[in-house]
């Protein structure tokens, strides 16, 4: 067990990424993720790693592309509007099969919106955001401990599958301080024969997503899809709480899952058999894990700080077996435990 320390989620994420072997960080200021950039500005150079404040979000993600092409563990972080700007670069990374870590400390939109926490970037993170048939491996922490741990583990996942990984957190998880234990796991090392480090004794490597003509590009796309199917098989992560004898399944991730957990306690104290399934990987989504637990369920309730985005994936997983209800707050508003509890009572 590592040392117990107290930091906010953004700083804990930075420390996690460094412990996970981050070689280079490229970022641009945006609230509510600035503590992460500031943490990296101090701690990356101290450990003789690369830190660059980029001139734009667009430049930052393309610097990540460059660092990753050079075989390094590269990352950037931003918040919702900034992540929108990065989408082209993310698509290029997916196309060129470059690993890397992108952190979205979600704030409220659309547009400039507000700096308050939100979960309205689910579609963007999980369904694409950029152009083309690609996926990101999306991790959704629900505590500062998980934020830290996932950051540390994300580079291994990214390198293993040669793809960008996104950590989807939010303003509340980023700003909140909470004790956590420092990650002291082992970093895996991956051979990167494709990396651009100088063509010593070999022909030149090329990193690219351009494939000229359709047949080549379709083959590349099919290979990507095959990789995604493997990830769907291997990498689904989720957590359950009081689900074993539940008749009402709550599905929520991140900040809203924390709130649902306490709401489940309140409901159970009232004799309502409620439980929580918390997706940790938003892609791959725990669809099978949801559908496998429907036999006893009378209803499913999805709770999100959005107008209802993940609920679409929940409905696909439930596939009409039981009614799927939704409760959400929008535009930077965060529901209270009491609100969720009232919703549970209303539908149970």
């Amino acid at each position: 067990m590592g040392k117990r320390v107290l930091m906010n989620g953004n700083e804990a994420l930075g420390e996690g990424a460094i412990r996970g072997g981050c070689d280079c960080y490229f970022g641009y200021p945006i609230t509510p993720q600035n503590e992460l950039t500031a943490y990296m500005a101090v701690n990356m150079p101290q450990r003789e790693k690369v830190f660059v404040q980029a001139e734009s979000e667009v430049a930052a993600i393309n610097m990540v592309y460059g660092g990753a092409a050079a075989g390094k563990r590269a990352m950037t972080s931003s918040s919702s509007p900034g992540i929108s700007l990065k989408q082209e670069g993310i698509s290029y990374m997916a196309g060129a099969q470059l690993p890397g870590l992108i952190v979205n400390v979600q704030r409220a939109g659309p547009g400039l919106g507000d700096i308050q926490p939100s979960q309205a970037d689910y579609f963007q993170a999980v369904k694409g955001g950029g152009h083309g048939d690609y996926r990101l491996l999306v991790l959704a922490p629900a505590s500062v401990q998980e934020t830290h741990d996932f950051a540390a583990q994300s580079f291994d996942l990214a390198d293993k599958y040669r793809m960008p990984v996104m950590i989807l957190t939010d303003g509340r998880l980023g700003q909140m301080m909470e004790p956590f234990e420092l990650w002291e796991g082992k970093i895996e090392t991956f051979d990167k024969p494709w990396a651009l480090i100088g063509a010593k004794g070999r022909s030149g490597n090329a990193i690219h997503s351009y494939w000229g003509q359709a047949p080549g590009l379709e083959i590349v796309n099919l290979a990507l899809q095959e990789k995604y199917r493997l990830i769907e098989k291997e990498e689904v992560r989720f957590d359950t709480y009081k689900l074993d004898d539940a008749e009402l399944m709550l599905v929520a991730y991140g900040t809203s899952a924390r709130l649902c957990r306490e709401a489940v306690d309140l409901a159970c104290a009232d004799g309502i058999k409620a439980g929580l399934l918390r997706p940790i990987t938003l892609w791959p989504f725990p669809s099978r894990e949801i559908s496998a637990r429907l036999a006893r369920m009378k209803k499913v309730l999805t709770v999100e700080m959005s107008a209802g985005q993940m609920v679409e994936d929940v409905r696909l997983a439930v596939n009409g077996a039981v009614p799927v209800e939704f409760y959400g707050r929008l535009g930077g508003a965060v529901m209270t435990v009491r609100e969720i509890y009232e919703k549970i009572k209303a539908i149970a």
Binding site: R4, P32, I115, Q175, M176, M177, P179
Partner: peptide
């Protein structure tokens, strides 16, 4: 913050949340 740090070893769970932004 000082209070949170003092209580780090005394309380099994704790959170500190700042008002931020505007």
């Amino acid at each position: 913050k000082l209070f949170a740090h003092i209580m780090l070893e005394k309380s099994p769970h704790l959170t500190f949340f700042p008002s931020y932004g505007a």
